[in-house]
Amino acid sequence: MIGKRLTTLVLLAILLAVTGFTGVAAAQTGGGAGELQPLIDFLDSLAQLLMLAGASLGTLGFATAGVMYMIPGEDWSRKAKTVAKSTIIGLVILLSANMMVAWIASQLGGF
Rank of each mutant, 00 (worst) to 15 (best):
E35M: 13
F21E: 03
M100C: 03
A13L: 15
T22A: 15
M70D: 02
I88R: 11
G34T: 10
G58H: 01
G34C: 02
T19W: 05
V67T: 06
L94F: 07
T29M: 07
T64L: 09
G58Y: 01
G66I: 06
Q28C: 07
L36S: 13
A25C: 07
L15W: 05
A102I: 07
G31E: 12
F111Y: 14
G54V: 08
T29G: 09
S86M: 06
Q107G: 08
L11S: 11
T29D: 13
L49W: 08
L6Y: 09
A53P: 05
G110S: 06
S45R: 15
L57S: 00
Q28E: 13
L16K: 02
W103N: 00
A33L: 07
V67S: 04
M1N: 08
T64K: 02
T64Q: 02
G54W: 10
G54S: 14
K85S: 15
E74A: 15
L36H: 13
G109E: 07
G109P: 00
L39G: 05
S96M: 07
I88G: 04
M68A: 15
W103F: 06
T8E: 08
L50Y: 05
I88C: 12
K81Q: 11
S77F: 08
L49K: 07
T7S: 14
G20D: 07
T22P: 04
Q28I: 12
L9G: 10
I40R: 10
I71E: 09
M100R: 01
K4P: 00
